[in-house]
Design a protein around this nucleic acid. Structure first.
Length: 368
DNA sequence: TAAACGTGGCT
DNA sequence: TAGCCAAGTTT
């Protein structure tokens, strides 16, 4: 612990802080589906879904997921495609694949019981420092820090900490701090209260300090610097990528789709045939796509004129997709694609970018 | 350590 | 509008 922070802790009234924070939480906490359950598996699922994702977005996904996979055993026995389908549209799909794999690990090696200790938890795929602490404290009421973005924002303001919260070293410092101030009697409520305060009161852009139950001990409030904290380095601009995609269909009403590789972006999800375009094409986009589909999948097609373009922004890049369609005549030598009916298509997990492609095709078709 | 990894809502 | 952000983890 650094000297400056230790000094602030020495002047800090820990018990008063715990009491004010937890009392506020008991009065003001939101009713959320995962708060209705004490099942460590349900807590675990919610914590994975909530990573980098808003509460309002997660709620319907959580309810559907728990209905479909109510127990560790149910999820462990499910097919990965079924799991990805339940995650479709939620993003960061490796979370779903890691959760599935970790749950199988728990089913096999821990008799279907979510571990209640640091050593076993941190070996599970997708369970990092935050999620480990969240499961231990919320599911098992063990006083472990669960430091997320909310907690770092709240505590950086209360203790006036100006270190960059994007650094691992800074997060570790906050974990040390939480270890000291956490309620040993009510660690679950303490950790959740800290996060709830960050979400509802001590918000990023316009903190409601006058409604804050702990402003009395907040350094930032007294120095009026709450808008300058926390300090966080900025991300770089996203890279632009040019793509062309084709929705292939045939007279029998089948669609032709492709599964993405098992690693990297959108791993194992399904998509319509597409190719990343060269910077300065010697061929037109349409010709590049036609050649690619012919070479890669051995199907002969003639593309329609451009249906439209779609921009899809990821966290680290932007896809600019030119969308075409084509009727497949002969597919006897086809490889790397499968053909599915409209009805079967619904069982496959597609990224939002390709759902947009399907929608654009449907709208073009309808207007003919 | 820094980049990869999704999506949708807000300012 | 364009950028920032939301209960992070993996490589």
């Amino acid at each position: 612990m650094n000297k400056d922070l230790q000094k602030k802790i020495d002047q800090f009234t820990i018990e008063g802080f715990q009491k004010q924070l937890i009392n506020w939480y008991r009065d003001e906490k939101r009713e959320l589906p995962w708060r209705e359950s004490l099942d460590p598996y349900h807590i675990w699922v919610s914590e994975i879904m909530l990573q980098q994702t808003r509460v309002d977005t997660v709620i319907p996904y959580f309810e559907n997921f728990i209905t479909k996979f109510p127990t560790i055993q149910a999820l462990a026995e499910a097919e990965e495609q079924e799991v990805l389908k339940a995650w479709e549209g939620l993003g960061y799909y490796s979370r779903a694949r890691n959760l599935h794999s970790a749950v199988q690990e728990v089913q096999e090696h821990y008799g279907g019981v979510v571990p209640n200790n640091v050593k076993e938890l941190e070996r599970l795929k997708g369970v990092g420092p935050y999620t480990k602490g969240a499961i231990l404290s919320i599911a098992y009421n063990i006083p472990e820090p669960a430091v997320d973005g909310n907690v770092m924002r709240v505590l950086s303001r209360i203790f006036s900490i100006w270190d960059d919260i994007a650094k691992v070293k800074t997060r570790k410092q906050f974990e040390e701090l939480v270890s000291v101030i956490i309620s040993k009697e009510y660690p679950s409520e303490f950790n959740q209260a800290l996060m709830e305060l960050g979400a509802m009161v001590c918000t990023p852009t316009s903190p409601a300090c006058l409604l804050c139950p702990v402003r009395e001990q907040c350094h930032a409030f007294y120095e009026n610097v709450q808008h300058e904290l926390p300090v966080k380095t900025k991300k770089k601009a996203t890279k632009q990528v040019q793509m062309a995609a084709a929705l292939l269909y045939d007279r029998q009403g089948y669609y032709y789709i492709h599964q993405r590789p098992s690693k990297g972006l959108l791993a194992n999800l399904w998509e319509f045939p597409n190719v990343q375009l060269k910077e300065e094409p010697s061929f037109t986009y349409k010709k590049q796509l036609e050649n690619f589909i012919c070479d890669e999948y051995s199907v002969e097609i003639t593309l329609t004129p451009l249906l439209g373009t779609i921009q899809h922004v990821f966290s680290h890049l932007t896809w600019n997709i030119s969308v075409y369609s084509a009727e497949v005549i002969g597919s006897s030598n086809m490889k790397g694609l499968i053909k599915v009916s409209e009805e079967q298509l619904k069982a496959y997990a597609f990224p939002v970018s390709h759902q947009k492609i399907k929608k654009m095709y449907a709208e073009n078709t309808r207007s003919e």
